[in-house]
Design a protein around this nucleic acid. Structure first.
Lengths: 287, 287
DNA sequence: TATTTGTGATAGGTGAAAGCTATGGTTCCG
DNA sequence: CGGAACCATAGCTTTCACCTATCACAAATA
């Protein structure tokens, strides 16, 4: 049997006053109730805690021992609640950000260092996968915040538009125009491939890679024509250029998180940091 | 509001299974009861701990935080009870021995060093006063074990005879026989004084001291006739001797402790150590 | 010595709260 | 579409912590 916290606080008060009647008065309960509570506690602990006399009560050895520990326990109880609330109201704890690896490359370096400097108690973990997997994991709470492309609506999800991107065909000046390099797992690639087929364009060979960076590199080397988002292609702008008149797929990069986290301070800090990256970008464009 | 330990164990189980129905089954309560218990806990903590879905539940950030601390708290809860019981069954904790300072001088050195070596977790405190004060403090639980002279019977007290002593008159060979040196607070001195008065013996002057050691020293210096217990006088045996035909007051040195401590292991250890001193003495006498 | 005061224990009744069964509503899956 | 899985809600029952009233005892007081 486990002693109840109420009985413990009762006992602590009795240990302070060494007088059941007066302790009862202080605690706002009747003296018989307190007597019974003390008996309950003694029974739960399995040892006598007090010696009763007509001039009050005194602690037995077991009672003294219990008093010490009870004080600690009740204290850590408050800390328990405070800790749980703190995770709502303080910027601290462990949070997971998810995004596509290519998004990670252009995004994370722009806010993570400053964020971790500003909030030493904040522990950030990363997960990388396809946008739709990331979105699933946000919905199922495996990931706290996601930066994804073209997310589907979901009742539990808060979606925040960050920026646009364009996926299209890129090539180096001396590229082999009969080879296509792309990531076939991306919906964007599939869509563009369909459009190209309809337009009658055909490629003798295809090179697949799940890494947009690899695709960009191969494209820059002149291996073929690459399907790439502008944000990735920009990193190799000196070597490759858009293929004119090629079809374009418009991407929306969005920040997503579960609605119930809207008031969690740490999540708010993460979101603010991520959005800050793109607000800086808009201002540059405007200028 | 303080959450009950039961609700905490419920929450931990739910956090393990992430399924309210199955957790309820394991806990041996109904699923609605568990649902309500979780709502209670969330209300007590002041933050949502779980997000409910049709495929089970998941922990919020506050929930994760609470889970960690709840595990620790529940653990220390068991230790709470165990600790209180341990003070009954293990030789550890803080205990106070009380005795007259002169008793302390001949007694403590003979068992304390070995006792503290044998039981490193035992913390011994000392208090010195007149025997009747010590006895009072044992009864009122300020002192755990007392070594006192001629204790009065008391329903709560266990009294254990240790040895006898004789209080009588002592003098150095060249002593001033018209001066009496004694501690007037001691009943023994008062009793002997009465007897001396009845017998027509009178002293021109009296020197009072509350320290038997001081009295013994002054007596040894030849200042006068001292009233001393044999055990104290023995320390100065080379210099002083009993006054022949003087009245004698018989002392009984006794070990006392409260009856409810009879089964406390630490008290038993203290008692055994103290009694061991005198059993060794008896054997010496017999030999 | 008798009485009052102070203390904790006991007895019986009451009400809030925690438990149960039954049911509702939602989502998922075949 | 029907059933299964899941959590929430409603209504009833039971438990138990609490209260009032009283007892028993010892100490203080008159």
């Amino acid at each position: 049997m486990v002693p109840s916290p109420a009985d413990l606080t009762y006992f602590v008060e009795v240990a302070n006053t060494l007088n059941v009647s007066r302790a009862a008065e202080r605690l706002g309960i009747s003296q018989p109730s307190l007597s019974l509570a003390l008996q309950r506690l003694e029974h739960a602990v399995g040892a006598p805690l007090l010696t009763r006399s007509k001039r009050g009560v005194a602690l037995t050895q077991a009672g003294k021992q219990l008093l010490q520990q009870a004080r600690l326990l009740l204290q850590s109880w408050d800390e328990l609640r405070a800790g749980a609330l703190a995770s709502m109201n303080e910027i601290q704890g462990s949070y997971t950000i998810g995004c596509h690896p290519s998004v990670a490359l252009y995004l994370l370096g722009r806010f993570l260092p400053q964020l971790m400097r500003d909030h030493p108690k904040l522990d950030v973990r990363l997960r990388h996968d396809l946008s739709r997997k990331i979105a699933e994991d946000v919905i199922s709470m495996k990931i706290d915040v996601g930066v994804v492309v073209n997310p589907v609506q979901h009742p539990d999800l808060v979606i925040h538009r960050l920026c646009e991107d364009e996926v299209t065909l890129w090539a180096a000046p001396a590229a082999n125009r009969s080879v296509l390099i792309c990531d076939p797992d991306l919906l964007q690639s599939q869509s563009l491939l369909k459009k190209l087929k309809k337009a009658g364009m055909d490629f003798s060979r295809t090179i697949n890679s799940s890494s947009l960076e690899v695709i960009a590199d191969l494209t820059a080397q002149g291996c073929g024509i690459g399907i790439l988002p502008a944000r990735v292609a920009d990193r190799a702008l000196k070597k490759i250029a858009r293929v004119p008149k090629a079809p374009v797929f418009f991407d929306e990069h969005c920040l997503i998180y579960r609605a119930e986290n809207k008031n969690v301070k740490s999540i708010q800090a993460l979101n603010a940091a991520i959005r800050g990256v793109f607000e800086g970008e808009k201002q540059k464009k405007a200028a």
